[in-house]
Design a protein around this nucleic acid. Structure first.
Lengths: 321, 321
DNA sequence: CTGTTAGCGCCTTCAC
DNA sequence: GTGAAGGCGCTAACAG
């Protein structure tokens, strides 16, 4: 394995000069810096990060924490795209993505603690928002950087990346009522009262008021409930749902009762394969990969220019097509 | 931060004794070993893994590689549960899960190379099976351990964990034809020709032959195709699908055409919330978490007893309820 | 601008 | 059974 000594030797300089050159230390003349960097690249030198981390006292890793159970959470393609966005950005910084995931909250916390104590990881991403989360509390106490995906709900002033769900709700509802000319929309949500659902619903309600329509809402509790709901609301002529799965689930039940087709639907996340539903489905793209890259830039305290105060939150815009 | 020197000092022994005691080295008397371990635990000592890794020349991390794009792949809850299974097992070994994930194949390979060269990671899990995969080739060339999720298709004798998809196909079909008494089943698959789909189909065909029924198959190409298929096959009275999403998709289209309910359905992965379909849905549980833990035991060369030859593959059984 | 030296925390030869 | 010393690869004082 090629070490920095080898590079130093081949370049005819001392190890420390090589080290400084490779780290772009201004104390080394630009000429030798370039020369040594070129040499290292040519020889295929790769620094040993265990050694770097040992001296730095900090690992080149970001801990990404999954919620304990996501069976009821926002859907999964979203997570995967988010991971992709995060990791692409981390690679540029020569960082690695480590995940903490477990079935039990206790084990998960232990996982994070091990990352901190044994792994010297100092930056984390929480892929969820919980009330009084012990992991967030631990990270705060240890004064470590972390960013949550989704706006905090417990009043803590944490860094976060989110969509503007209120705006997305307004946009989606406007699209449904205006472009798709729906007169009797229904808002379909999971029944878990997630923050993003509430916010999108508020957007929906606001637009409904503008259009003078009654803001009808249905939670997907169970089959009987929804069937009965649909039975009592034959007037429904369009769906706005908090995600694609809720949308097709409800639509399926509508079709079961009434002979409709090309039914106007607006939902979120862009997570279905196309062509397999006859609904006129417009899924709002929330750009999870962009959220991932924004997360990283928040995590590392990027700023537009030096004078700008660092931001604590980033909202990613949406797109309806 | 508590280092091994602190422990050594408090125990009144030298650093090397402390090190050996903590690593359960038999050269240290059992008594002092216990004593020092107890002390370390009481003081909350945690070894610095960057230092350990530096001397060991190998990181306490496993690289988990995601496919470039999984939009068309097996569904995602499966991945998440798999990750959970892998990580739970890794934690026991004081290992960390690092992920490689990217949109492009080139960047993904670069990601893995960096993990190897800079991170000293020597063990990998590939969450996919590809023909002539450059990443698998790289890992083979470097003689690193890796396990694929799914049986290799290119004739390479790699380690893998999989379900017994043929058996699961036979089991699922038997359940549908026997227990659920279906006379005119249809086999629904994605059209991507994944290995597991082919194998389950073979199981289905075998059972169909036993029951003297025509092995009907439908690929979910596009809406028109499937609708026409359903139109031409009014006799269908039960569905066997390669996963839950394919199942409900097809079922929706059946219901759209015919007034059925409590339709018998067998599919795989157990990935839907219950209560929101009126199909008589029996989803085969493939125990992704178990697959994860089996993956790790393969990766670390566990054996039942010392004399047993190491296994290169593990098949996880299924369950139908 | 560059070289020498010490040390990050831990493990492991080599002595006793 | 235990200790002292050196080194893993790299960075950061301290010199010059």
């Amino acid at each position: 394995m090629l070490t920095i000594r080898d590079i130093a030797a081949k370049a005819g300089v001392s190890v420390s000069t090589a080290s400084r050159a490779l780290n772009n230390n201004p104390r080394i003349s630009v000429a030798t810096r370039k020369r040594i960097q070129a040499l290292a690249a040519a020889e295929g030198y790769r620094p040993n990060y265990n050694a770097k981390n040992l001296t730095a006292g900090e690992a080149n890793a970001v801990g990404v924490v999954f919620p304990t159970s996501d069976r009821n959470s926002t859907d999964n393609p979203f997570y995967i795209d988010l991971l992709r966005g995060i990791n692409t950005e981390l690679m540029k910084r020569q960082y690695v993505l480590s995940v903490a995931i477990s079935k039990t909250a206790a084990e998960l916390l232990e996982n994070v603690k091990a990352m901190v104590a044994q792994g010297k990881i100092k930056r984390f991403v929480l892929l969820y928002v919980h009330q009084d989360d012990p992991i967030a509390a631990f990270l705060r106490e240890k004064q470590l950087h972390f960013v949550t995906i989704g706006e905090p709900i417990d009043g803590n002033d944490d860094y976060f990346v989110d969509n503007d769900n209120l705006e997305a709700g307004i946009g989606g509802a406007s699209f449904l009522l205006d472009q798709l000319a729906v007169k009797h929309p229904v808002f379909v949500e999971s029944g878990h009262e997630w923050g993003y659902e509430r916010q999108r619903r508020q957007g929906y309600e606001r637009v409904a008021a503008q259009f003078n329509v009654e803001p009808l809402t249905c939670k997907l509790h169970d089959l009987e409930y929804v069937r009965s709901f649909i039975e009592h609301h034959p007037e429904i002529d369009g769906i706005m749902a908090t995600d694609d799965f809720n949308a097709i689930e409800f639509y399926r039940l509508v079709r079961e009762r009434y002979a409709v087709s090309h039914f106007p639907v607006v939902s979120y996340n862009h997570s279905l394969p196309t062509g397999l539903t006859d609904a006129d489905l417009h899924s709002v793209n929330l750009f999870p990969e962009k959220m991932g890259s924004a997360t990283v830039s928040l995590l590392f305290g990027d700023r537009q220019d030096k004078t700008a105060t660092p931001r604590k939150q980033i909202r990613i815009p949406y797109e309806i097509k």
